[in-house]
């Protein structure tokens, strides 16, 4: 266990480092997502070995619940607030967090108001889903706090449907 302040200071320095090397908000978010990717891949292996020995999720719902519960608990200390599916699209899901850890200490300057450091968490989640066999695009949005929008590949949903009833 260590202090949240230690993480906050490290993360802030990380964001500033990335900021110095990019020209736009989109690029900055892309960089943060890449770093999140790196963290996600490594967190997944350790976590699966600990929490789900010898077993992996094969259903979309299973993997989403794994993300909302064990993964979020292990990394951020609590479950994600909400998990929702889009009404109009069976490929799209939302992980909603009112106060994401990575944004706790970030004040967004007005000229970059679209910046969302939760891009880091989005990259992390994308890596976890991809490596679990559920390729998806994950993006961060300001909506009901912070929402991570997951858009699964067509193939993932098709496979899930074909598994239904087994």
């Amino acid at each position: 266990e260590l202090s949240l302040a230690a993480f906050a200071l490290l993360f802030s320095e990380l964001v500033q480092y990335c900021q110095r090397r990019v020209g736009s908000v989109a690029e900055l978010q892309e960089r943060l997502a890449q770093l999140g990717h790196h963290v996600g891949l490594r967190a997944l292996d350790a976590l699966v070995a600990r929490e789900r020995p010898g077993r992996r999720e094969t259903k979309v719902l299973g993997v989403l619940l794994f993300v909302k519960g064990p993964l979020w608990r292990a990394l951020f200390g609590h479950d994600a607030d909400k998990l929702e599916q889009a009404n109009d699209d069976d490929r799209t899901f939302y992980v909603i967090e009112r106060e994401p850890l990575v944004n706790t200490f970030v004040s967004v300057p007005r000229e970059n108001s679209s910046l969302n450091c939760a891009a880091f968490a989005a990259g992390l989640l994308e890596a976890v889903l991809g490596a679990s066999g559920f390729p998806a695009r994950v993006s961060a949005h300001w909506h009901k706090g912070t929402t991570l929008m997951i858009k699964f590949d067509e193939a993932v949903i098709a496979r899930d449907k074909s598994l239904e009833g087994r």
Partner: peptide, 17 residues
């Protein structure tokens, strides 16, 4: 307090970058 794992892995991502 927080779990050290996120911190450790984030630091690793920084060094790798």
């Amino acid at each position: 307090k927080m779990n050290s794992e996120l911190f450790t892995l984030t630091y690793g991502a920084l060094v790798t970058q």
